[in-house]
Each structure stands twice: as structure tokens, then as C-alpha cells.
């Protein structure tokens, strides 16, 4: 069985005027399909950069990246199957939804663009799957709470039935009480859809709660890979 995600000596450099900053240095890891993997470490350690490479947002990297056996090409946005298989939920639900589009439009448009039939019904099901009532569909995001917005963002990321879901600090912009709800929702959805999760967080407890194994990063390097007992221990 091929791994959901394989990174082999992934490096990312940024040029900041004169200085060359190595955001990620030769990171290698492998995530088995159907598991939850966490990346954690202090801010600026390169964990989000790894995620953005896998998402196809950050294109300037070197090394090898492959999802479900399909290699990425540096400098090119992922296309076709790979594009749909890998989706992402962003940190700030206030910035990742269009402020002037209704929830219905937010959910139906990707379905229409990707040629999925019966967009209205599929969008309604997606709302139900993340535990939102159908009557919020005509509203715009500013009528929703942060937790509801993040649920919409999760519903949107799941529309195309991705096999690998990337989560960039999905709960850090939310209240404590809402954080647990969202994390449990993600775990339920992972089981229901048979997805692989790659979760980035600075919060070790979040990682320990959700993930089967995790990597600790520091200054662009992967310091250690921790399995389930090791995660639970600390």
C-alpha cells in the first residue's frame, strides 16, 4: 500500500532581500494512508511551510514530494486528481471564506466547477455532515460565529472527497469550548470518509488528542518522530 504522503529531503528557502532563509531543511517523513499525523513545534519552525508545499500553495521547494504515489513538480501547481485529493482547512475562518458570498454559493460553486451533478443536494449534505442547520445556507459568513465558519470551511474542504486533508492550526482562532467540538468533528469525519489527516499545530495537546503519530520540528528540521505512546506520555 502506498503512503498517503511521502516527503524526501524537502527543503524550502526564502529570499528576504539579501538573506537566504532556510524555512525547511531536508525534511523527510512518510504518512500511512488512513492515519492522522501531526506536525508541531514553536512558531517559525517551518511546520506551516511544509503544509503549504503539500497544499500546492508554496511552489519554490526542492527534494521529493509525493501524495498517494503521485509526485509533485516543484514550481507547478498540482493538477487533476492530485488537486482534488489534497484539500486544506486554514487557520483563520474569518479570512478563508468570501465575505460577500452566501454559504450556499461558497459550497455549490466548487461542485459546479468540478462538474459534480446535483450541486444543491450535495452542498446541503455537506452542511449536514459538519453539523450545521440547513437554514444558514442563504446567509453570508458575517452572520456566523467563528466555530460555525470553521465548520463551513471544513464542509467546503470535504466537497471534493479528498483523501488527504491538511489542517493548518484549525482551532487556534477559536474559543476553548469550540476547539474541542471542531477537533472531535474532524476525527469523526476522518473515520467516516476514510481520510488521512495532516495536522499542524503549536499546541501539543491538540496533536496528542487527534494524531496517531507526529513529528516535532525546530528551526526547519524534523527533530523527532513520535508514535502514539510517546505522544501520550508527555
Amino acid at each position: 500500500m502506498t503512503a498517503a504522503l511521502e516527503l524526501d529531503r524537502l527543503s524550502v528557502h526564502f529570499y528576504n532581500g539579501r538573506h537566504d532563509i532556510a524555512a525547511v531543511r531536508e525534511a523527510s517523513l512518510s504518512i500511512a494512508a488512513g492515519t492522522s499525523f501531526g506536525l508541531f513545534g514553536p512558531s517559525g519552525c517551518g511546520k506551516s511551510t511544509v503544509l503549504r508545499v503539500v497544499a500546492g500553495i508554496e511552489l519554490g521547494w526542492s527534494g521529493q514530494v509525493a501524495a498517494f504515489g503521485t509526485p509533485y513538480r516543484a514550481g507547478q501547481k498540482p493538477q487533476g486528481r492530485l488537486r482534488r485529493d489534497v484539500q486544506m482547512v486554514f487557520q483563520d475562518p474569518y479570512a478563508s471564506l468570501h465575505p460577500r458570498h452566501s454559504i450556499r454559493r461558497t459550497l455549490e460553486e466548487p461542485l459546479i466547477v468540478n462538474g459534480i451533478a446535483d450541486a444543491r443536494r450535495v452542498a446541503a449534505e455537506a452542511l449536514a455532515a459538519v453539523g450545521l442547520p440547513p437554514d444558514i445556507a442563504p446567509r453570508t459568513p458575517n452572520a456566523l460565529s467563528g466555530g460555525q465558519r470553521q465548520r463551513v470551511a471544513i464542509a467546503r474542504a470535504l466537497l471534493l472527497k479528498p483523501r488527504l486533508l491538511l489542517l493548518d492550526e484549525p482551532t487556534s482562532a477559536l474559543d476553548m469550548s469550540v476547539q474541542a467540538e471542531i477537533l472531535n468533528l474532524l476525527m469523526d469525519l476522518k473515520a467516516a470518509y476514510g481520510m488521512t489527516l495532516l495536522l499542524v499545530s503549536h499546541d501539543r495537546d491538540v496533536i496528542a488528542h487527534v494524531c496517531d503519530s507526529a513529528a516535532r520540528m525546530r528551526a526547519g528540521l524534523i527533530e523527532a518522530i513520535l508514535d502514539r505512546p510517546a505522544l501520550a506520555a508527555v
Binding site: A55, R83, V86, F90, A95, S96, L97, E109, V113, L160
Partner: peptide, 17 residues
Amino acid sequence: RSDYMASVEMLGIRGPR
């Protein structure tokens, strides 16, 4: 450069739309 654009591009929305 916003997360918003990244998220809709990941869903395949591009061009004039």
C-alpha cells in the same frame, strides 16, 4: 496572497470565474 485565494484555487476555481 491570502488564505482565501489559496482555498478557492485548491477547489479548482480559477480564470474569469
